[in-house]
């Protein structure tokens, strides 16, 4: 039992956090009576504990609990979309680059290198400035900036996997390239994709919050944690709760998902498998 806690304690904790956030996101309409966009100017800036508003209200009288919960929806939606997109595109390109080492691989990896030389958040911001504001565009910009990690990791894995005996054996048996790639190589690099995805997931959520904080990304009145934090600055002196709760939600989510990612790495990484 002690061994389980030692080995899986972080995973359980992380999964608990992640599950909490997931429940908040999915069940938001059931958990709060208020609509996150519903304003009541006369009831603005009420502190936490106000009847009907457990976390208080913002400057326009919107229920903060509702906004934080619906914010979880936005965060998770963006996170999931970005992870799926980048895993698909980055994973595929990594597979190809690793499997076809010739000029295909070289070109793909040089593109990846160039892109890696820019800081992730700066690149995402730049792309966002080009494609414009809004939910869809923030997903596009984060994905375009984020696929490289998969490509590099997957390529590295493929390079080693494809030299393994079973691959050579399959090749000798006359299997087609596509079948070889997707049937024999892909399953062996899948754990890496899952691990990278779980770590990237949190990074995307935090990056989205950062970009929305700067005023790009998700636009009001859509409740996003980043823009809520940004709006709270003007009220920091009089309403600490505007910054505290979205900030805590963001931290909790990122922590939870990262713990899950770490745990997955430990469990899935063959080197740790006894």
């Amino acid at each position: 039992m002690k061994g389980f806690v030692g080995r899986h304690g972080r995973g359980v904790l992380g999964l608990t956090f992640a599950a909490l956030v997931l429940v908040a996101a999915v069940a938001a309409p059931l958990l709060v009576a208020h609509d996150p966009g519903q304003t009541d100017f006369a009831a603005g800036l009420k502190p936490p504990g106000t009847p009907g508003h457990p976390l208080g209200t913002d400057q326009l009288g919107r229920d903060l609990l509702a906004r934080v919960l619906y914010g979880a929806r936005v965060a998770l939606f963006i996170g999931v979309c970005c992870v799926l997109l980048t895993a698909l595109v980055g994973g595929l390109l990594g597979l190809l680059a690793g499997f076809f080492e010739g000029w295909t691989g070289a070109v793909l990896m040089r593109i990846a290198d160039v892109q890696l030389s820019f800081p992730f958040i700066l690149l995402a911001l730049t792309i966002n400035a080009i494609v414009g504001l809004g939910l869809r565009n923030i997903i596009v910009s984060l994905s375009v900036a984020g696929w490289v990690v998969y490509a590099r990791v997957v390529r590295g894995e493929v390079l080693s996997v494809k030299e393994r005996d079973f691959v050579h054996a399959a090749h000798a048996l006359g299997l087609g390239r596509a079948r070889l790639l997707f049937r024999h190589v892909l399953p062996n690099v899948a754990p890496s994709i899952v691990i990278v995805a779980s770590l990237q997931f949190a990074q995307f959520i935090v990056a989205e919050a950062a970009i929305s904080f700067l005023g790009f990304g998700v636009q009001p009145p859509t409740p996003a944690w980043g823009s809520m934090l940004s709006e709270s600055r003007d009220y920091l002196y009089v309403a600490w709760w505007l910054a505290a709760f979205p900030g805590a939600a963001l931290a909790l989510t990122a922590l939870g998902i990262n713990l899950v990612g770490d745990w997955l790495r430990d469990v899935l990484d063959p080197r740790f498998r006894v």
């Binding site: 400057q59 326009l60 009145p221």
Partner: peptide
């Protein structure tokens, strides 16, 4: 300005 605009939208 931004708060006013959000209030107008509401």
């Amino acid at each position: 300005d931004k708060d006013v605009s959000l209030a107008i939208a509401a």
